[in-house]
Each structure stands twice: as C-alpha cells, then as structure tokens.
Simulated scan of single mutants.
Amino acid sequence: MTAPAPGADGPSPRTRTAQHYSVAPVLDAPEGYIAPGMPGVPVTGYEPHTPAVHRRPPRSRTALALTLALLATLLGGLAYGCAPLRAADSLGWLTIAQAGLVALPLGRLGGRNRLLPPLGALLAAAALLLGQLTQRLRLTHAAGPAPHGLLHTTLTTWHTHLRPLDLAFYAIALTGGFLLTRRTANHP
C-alpha cells in the first residue's frame, strides 16, 4: 500500500500512522548530512592509544637457561645421591622436585622455544640417573675396594638393582620435566 500524494484529494481526516513507500521518501536533511551511527560518519572524540615507548617482547635467553638447567641437573642429582641411605626406597618420589628444579630456568628464561620441553624431560631423567648412580657409588665405596674398578662395579650394581618402580620414576621424571618446562614457559 502506498501513501497518497500530498494535496491530491485534500488532507485526510484520519490521524497519520505508519506509511509504506515503494521508494524511500526524500528526507528533509541538508545535503551531505549522515545520521550518527551510520557508515561513513567520522568518529569524533576517539583517540587511538599510542604508547610513548614501544615494549619489546621479552628476550629469550636460551644459553643462560641451558646453563642453569644443567647446573640444576647436577645439583639435583647430587642431592638425590647424597641423601641418607636409609631413605633410599622413598627417595624416588623426589624426582618431581628434580624435574621442577630443571624446568624452572628452562621455562622462565628460555621462553617458548619448542625444543626446551623435550630437553627439560631429558635433563630431569638425567638428574634421576645421576642421583641413582651417586647413591650406588656411595654404597659400593662403603662396601670396600672394588676388584674391577669403582665405576664398573657401580654400573653393574645399579643395573642389577634396577626395579620396575625405578622405571616408573623415570617416566615421572620425563613427563614432569616436559610438562613443567612447558607450563613455566607459558606463564608470564
């Protein structure tokens, strides 16, 4: 339905309601006027935020991270191996602490490098291995002089005393080193 042209039959006695047009009516607006909120309206009062100093992304200090992780591997392994001998059975669960000790510098200083989580897993397992070998070395040295050599005897006794629970501790060290390195790298 279309509205009658103005002035055709005179004014209508009905009140004006919504009108339907087949073509949009011409608005009484000045030329070039665009209603607020419509596309093409220049936005006023908005200033984009431009920081005075551009922040650089944090530097990745991979060499320092690797050095500290290797130092943490040595310290964690020696602390594990030098623990009292009577606590040897319950000591394997400390591999989580060794993994955390190795993962902290790798993740925090190394950044989000994709090679660092697998390296953290290997270093955590190496810390556990070093700790077990140090512990066996102390037991072998306490037993008396070794006939073939101290290192050979230590390795053979470590291999003969390896239990399935020790393999579970190695699995914990590998997964803990990987996951903790990745999580510490993702947190700011």
Rank of each mutant, 00 (worst) to 15 (best):
G76Y: 05
T184Y: 10
L137M: 09
L150K: 05
Y80I: 00
A143W: 08
A52Y: 01
R55N: 08
A125P: 01
G10M: 13
T73L: 15
A18Q: 07
I96W: 14
G177P: 09
P51G: 04
H159K: 03
T160R: 14
P48G: 02
A65D: 11
A5R: 14
L85E: 11
R163K: 05
P11N: 12
A72F: 10
G131R: 02
P11Q: 14
A146D: 10
H187T: 15
E31H: 02
P58W: 11
P58Y: 09
R59E: 10
P42Q: 02
G45D: 09
Q98C: 10
R86N: 10
P42H: 02
P30W: 01
A69P: 15
G131S: 09
D28R: 04
G144D: 05
L66W: 07
A168K: 01
S22G: 13
A146M: 05
L130H: 03
L180V: 04
T140H: 02
A99V: 09
R182A: 11
T175C: 08
A125W: 00
T50C: 00
C82Q: 09
L116W: 04
L104I: 13
A3D: 08
R108F: 11
L139D: 04
V53W: 00
L180F: 09
Y33I: 00
A79N: 05
L66T: 08
L27E: 05
G76E: 06
P39T: 08
T153K: 00
I172R: 03
L128M: 11
P42G: 02
Q135R: 15
A168L: 15
L75K: 03
L129Y: 04
G10R: 13
A146F: 03
Y21T: 01
I172Y: 04
P39M: 04
A29S: 04
A52P: 02
G77L: 11
A79D: 02
L150G: 07
P4L: 15
V41I: 01
M38F: 04
Q19F: 02
